[in-house]
Computed example of a mutant assay.
Amino acid sequence: MMTLDSIKQAQQRIAPYINKTPIVQSSLLNDWLGHRIYFKAECLQKIGAFKARGGCNAVAHLLEQGKQPKRIVANSSGNHAQAIAWAARQFNIPATIYMPSNVSKVKAQATASYGADIELLPTRDAVDTAVQNAAEDPDVYWIPPYNHNDVIAGQGTAAFEAVNELNNVDAVFAPCGGGGLISGSYIATKGLSPHTRVFGVEPLNANDAAESLRSGTIQSLKSAPDTLADGARTPSVGSITFEYLKQLDGFYEADEASIIYWTQWLTHLLKLTIEPTSAMTMFGVVEWLKTQSSAKEVVVILTGGNLDADSRRKLWQQDALTQLPSLNL
């Protein structure tokens, strides 16, 4: 198991390349909920998502160890693809990214714009098989989207920055797809502040992590999940990340109506472009706050802001802003 030192080393390694993103609040939301919510705005990160941290750390640490692959490969449905393409370009290494054909168009275009070669395949299984085959070449290095210690350590630097900057944080919430971010957030948060609780949130329609936690073994989705939270459509958590998920203080499953509701409200209140995968975390925040008897200070990792036109249309088909946020939702 990794420690806080892994996060600190990652922070030092990637500092010259990434943005130290701001922490923002909404006074209205704080008043309505009766608690103070701090949002770590990773939607303002390089490539528009926290994934830049893990991708950069993985590539930088590889070179730090004297390893120089001829090509880097990755498999991703979006933000990790951009992160590896961007990170590889920072260090002048060619990259190939394997992506499912239903990937967000804006994420695929952005990945290509960073100079990576893109290979679109019909299913997630085909993507995973293709990247594994490519990685058999000894001159090729594969950086998975979450089940990789350097990726996890890099992702954990977001929570590290937030908890380090704030005092007396009661809880940290982050979305869970494959579990890299929430694993890194757990390591960073508990290392800095052992009393602070750490919670994960995933879509109810893609709840493989919750099913895994309930069963005690890693469960995989049987088919492509129908959720707007495209950053959490991973078929299963990883063997590494699952060990951290089992240590979390709690885990929540957000339905699609709640994901849409909080995406609209956070976009409105914070004046930021916010992905549904980021916003769904507020479902868990509200569920937890309902059980609290005193005012709490909560950090929410806003993971990204890369939205294509189709997702925007689906998000705004109905107006959710007529119902004010409250703990009675």
Rank of each mutant, 00 (worst) to 15 (best):
M2R: 11
T3R: 10
T3N: 14
S6P: 03
Q9E: 08
A15Q: 08
P16G: 09
P16I: 02
N30V: 07
K40F: 00
E42I: 03
L44N: 03
Q45H: 07
I47Q: 03
R53G: 04
G55L: 13
G55N: 13
E64C: 04
G66I: 12
K67R: 13
I72Q: 07
G78F: 11
W86Y: 14
A88N: 09
F91R: 13
N92D: 15
Y98A: 09
Y98P: 01
N102W: 11
S104E: 05
S113M: 14
L120H: 05
L121Y: 13
R124D: 15
D125T: 12
V127T: 09
P144D: 14
P145E: 05
G156A: 07
T157H: 06
F160W: 10
V169I: 14
P175I: 07
P175H: 08
C176V: 15
L181C: 04
Y186Q: 08
I187M: 10
T189F: 11
G191C: 11
R197I: 02
E202G: 06
P203L: 14
P203G: 04
A206E: 06
L221T: 06
K222A: 15
P225Y: 07
T227G: 03
T227R: 03
T227N: 06
L228C: 04
A232I: 13
R233K: 15
S236M: 10
S239D: 00
I240W: 01
F242S: 07
Y244L: 09
D249Q: 15
I260H: 00
I274S: 00
T277C: 10
S278R: 00
M282E: 14
V286H: 02
V286Y: 04
W288L: 10
S293I: 11
S294Y: 06
K296C: 08
V299T: 05
T303K: 01
T303Q: 04
L307S: 01
S311E: 12
R313M: 08
L315I: 02
Q317A: 07
Q317N: 08
D319R: 06
L321M: 08
P325L: 06
S326M: 07
